[in-house]
Write a protein that binds this DNA or RNA. Structure first.
Lengths: 263, 263
DNA sequence: TAGTGGTCTAGACCACGTC
DNA sequence: ACGTGGTCTAGACCACTAC
């Protein structure tokens, strides 16, 4: 008694079976032809059902390889707060993006090179003209035991680029930020802008997620403590089903007790 | 020279035309048959292209009505911070969800009634057992001049439910929170958990968005100032392409200047 | 090269909004 | 009742991965 359309009905049935643990995360599902035979539907209809489950984060289908159950939806999302701490290097920082106990590693090579900043949105946040020459740091990080977790791109303002051009320490260390602060910008203050969007095809490939699965995009702006103007902008991109952010709301000074104490 | 598949190619062409302003937001696009004829593709292929643009927030297709260009992607997203202020009622609050200059109104009737809280996640945050009887406040709000902006569901803890059971003031007033605080829970402190997900069909219908467009889900937990335990949990659901959240990062007390001043 | 998912077509029928 | 988008099928072919 399908209350939905056929493919949504099939998607629902497969979703239930995944949640019931019929296949382990990482395991491969039956082929489209098998599902089609089992549910008495056309293979194309099953393919649409799988596309739904991809957008929801349940599975990841790759041509020639098969359909794998994803981990994201099955495990708790990683919390991400708004507190900046010192890390074990004492001069570096531990940002909320790296909170947690695991050791974060870099997946693949980091790229640290001059580049044109063409994105007008990022350029405005960094306080430069679109097309300006800046230092760009690209890296992909995540827990050592897992697939890549987040993409991480920093654009460093020209006025401090030469200070950090040769820094290539491990991703969580924040050594380059220390150098900027040491050079007269202490203390850097940070602001973040969060939003959800669909990934580009390149981002989806790097993160190993379906192109239809939304990502959380966080743009962090670091501003100099001396003149208040931006010194770096960093963009984080992470699969939306693998993270949730936690925020403590702050009271405006004017939002105090509105009644007189009955003293 | 399609570098993509046919339907992604068509989606790209239509996307470009929308961004170029060929159709005003709110206007109707040509029919599927027209696009099919224009691009020399099957109607079903065009329908897949439209589905892509729906998930990206560009259009909203409804059976029997046609395909309309959406506003969301074309205009700036609304910023949403983490500061709680007093509102014009002096005893109510203005939450970041309602920041901005517009007058927010309720779309349709508010529902304010006892209900079973079956969602285990919400129940845990409210500090009650799943299935517990709580007071539930449902409302849909947004700027007066626009379509519904966000869904807004509060679950009120049984220990304070009778205090606010009859309150039905306008959505931004926060009168019910004042009553709770007045009853011995001053000051309530709030924490938010943000994540992105796909909407349920019901949520998509209420918000007037495609079911494939991701939403931002914010769960706010308000805890009593007297015992620190939750008194209310409110869930906000808003189309992900209409909002971005802004957060100021805070320094841990230990993250101070790591070098000695050269006095 | 084999196997798997991805896409496309033509045609049919269904579902929903509007008149 | 009509017009529109939504879905489904059978069959074909393409694209990518793994061997």
């Amino acid at each position: 008694m399908p209350v939905h359309s056929r493919y949504l009905d099939i998607a629902g049935k497969i979703r239930t079976r995944i949640e019931a643990g019929e296949w382990e995360p990482g395991a491969r599902l039956p082929r489209l032809d098998d599902f089609a035979a089992e549910y008495g539907a056309n293979r194309d209809t099953v393919a649409r059902a799988i596309a739904v489950l991809e957008a929801e984060g349940y599975v990841w289908a790759v041509q020639g390889r098969g359909i794998a159950v994803r981990y994201g939806t099955m495990r708790p999302r990683r919390p991400r707060g708004d507190l900046v701490k010192r890390n074990e290097h004492a001069t570096g920082y531990s940002f909320p993006s790296a909170s947690g106990q695991e050791v974060w590693v870099r997946h693949g090579a980091a790229i640290n090179a001059p580049a044109r900043l063409d994105d007008p949105r990022i350029a405005k946040l960094l306080g430069v003209e679109p097309g300006a020459q800046v230092l760009r740091r690209f890296r992909v990080t995540g827990p050592a035991s897992e697939a890549p977790f987040q993409i991480n791109i920093s654009w460093i303002h020209p006025r401090v680029a030469d200070i950090v051009a040769d820094v290539d320490a491990d991703p969580a260390a924040g050594e380059w930020l220390y150098r900027i602060e040491r050079a007269g910008h202490w203390p850097i203050s940070w602001m973040e802008i969060h939003r959800a969007r669909v990934p580009s095809k390149e981002e989806a490939d790097v993160l190993g997620i379906p192109a239809s699965l939304p990502v959380l995009e966080i743009v962090r702006v670091g501003s100099s403590g001396s003149d208040g103007k931006p010194v770096e902008v960093t963009e984080f991109v992470v699969a939306s089903d693998r993270v949730e952010t936690v925020h403590v709301l702050h009271r405006d000074p004017g939002a105090q007790q509105p009644w007189a104490d009955p003293v």
